Simulated scan of single mutants.
Amino acid sequence: MKRSLPELSHPQQPLVMVTAYDFPGARQAQAAGVDLILVGDSLGNVVLGYDSTAPVTLGDIIHHARAVRRGAPDTFLVVDLPFGTYHTGVTDAMRHAVRVVQETGADALKMEGATPEVLDVVRVLTRNGIPVMGHVGLMPQTATAQGGLRVQGKDDESARRTLEGALALQEAGAFAVVLEAIPARLARLITERLDVATIGIGAGVHCDGQVLVYHDLLGLYEGDEKKIAKRYAELGRQAREALQTYAAEVRAREFPTKDQSFVMKDEVLDKLY
């Protein structure tokens, strides 16, 4: 059964959230028993080869979210609204949000920021029955305006802006807020001040839950270690070694063997000569 929203508010046991971008990744996440799956616009970096999340389109996110829903039909699914899909007014945002929900089966949508314009969108979506997860701290969609991909909330102004943004998102109707790349003590304070759940990434252990990017935690890219992520496997290295072994066996005519080949009767073959 999918999780209901009330279960996500300050759970006694921290929530486990992971990104997924395709059917096999979602299937593995659901089998592992994660609480939430996020189809993040990080797919631009880790799947589509972009150098940021900004080029990800609504069509991209819908395509991948549909595959994820097929792979994880019973897991609470959150889908990112890409850059530009909720920045041009409430009417555009509502239209794009409805399309994502209708075409993907998403349980909730996620948006970055707490500007007045974003808060207006959160209010309208939630009033119309579309749950919204907020996002403060480092916001990859607009990281350039934040001085790049770096920790936020380290000075007085930035810390207060992050706290006030999280509180404003809650007031606007967000059911949870992602805290990305902020000091652990600030994340703890925000978590204590909010009634809704906080989901941390690079925000310390005191959040109500944690989220990691699928490719980061599985080590699918060699040498791409990030401070905010822990590598629980080295699948990138294992995949490269497997491919190298396959290539060597093909070139040495060691693959395929009889185990991977089919046979035919001699009399059938003789008729072909």
Rank of each mutant, 00 (worst) to 15 (best):
R240E: 12
A197I: 02
V124T: 14
P14T: 09
T88C: 11
A114S: 14
G44A: 09
V34A: 08
Y221P: 00
G84D: 09
Q210A: 09
Q170K: 04
E234Y: 12
R231N: 13
R188V: 00
V34T: 09
D120Q: 15
A242F: 07
A168F: 07
L167P: 00
G200A: 02
P6I: 10
R240V: 15
M264W: 10
V151G: 00
A252L: 11
V205C: 08
D107I: 08
K230C: 00
V34Y: 05
G40F: 06
E241P: 00
E117K: 11
L272Y: 13
Y221E: 11
L179S: 01
A176D: 00
V101I: 15
A54S: 07
A187P: 02
R193T: 11
P256A: 10
M111N: 02
H135K: 03
V46H: 09
L272M: 14
Q12T: 13
D80R: 05
V68L: 06
D22K: 06
V250Q: 13
A229G: 03
Q238K: 15
P183A: 03
F76I: 02
A166Y: 10
A67H: 12
R123W: 01
R161G: 06
R27K: 15
L243S: 11
D208R: 07
E157H: 13
G153P: 03
L109I: 05
V151D: 00
G59E: 15
T115G: 14
L138R: 02
I199Y: 02
L269P: 00
F255M: 03
D80A: 10
A26E: 02
L220V: 09
R95W: 00
A184P: 02
V263D: 05
E222F: 00
V122K: 04
V98R: 15
D35L: 06
V205A: 15
G209H: 08
R123H: 07
R70F: 00
G137L: 07
A197D: 04
E112Y: 06
P140D: 06
L138S: 07
S52I: 09
V211N: 01
Y21T: 07
G219P: 04
E192T: 10
L149P: 05
G89Y: 09
V132I: 15
A166T: 10
H135E: 07
E249K: 13
Y273F: 13
G113E: 04
V205T: 13
K227L: 12
V205E: 13
L217H: 09
T144Y: 13
A97K: 08
T88V: 07
D224K: 13
A242I: 05
M94F: 15
G165S: 04
G59A: 14
G147Q: 08
L169N: 04
A168I: 08
K154E: 15
V136E: 10
D60Q: 05
N128C: 06
R69F: 10
N128R: 15
V121P: 04
P116D: 08
I190S: 02
S52F: 09
Y86N: 04
D155I: 07
A32Q: 09
A67S: 14
T104V: 04
E112K: 06
G200M: 01
G165K: 03
V46S: 05
R66H: 10
K2V: 01
L189F: 07
A174L: 03
D120K: 12
L119A: 05
A181E: 11
R69D: 02
Y50Q: 11
V90I: 15
E180I: 08
G25E: 06
F83A: 12
V121Y: 01
V122R: 01
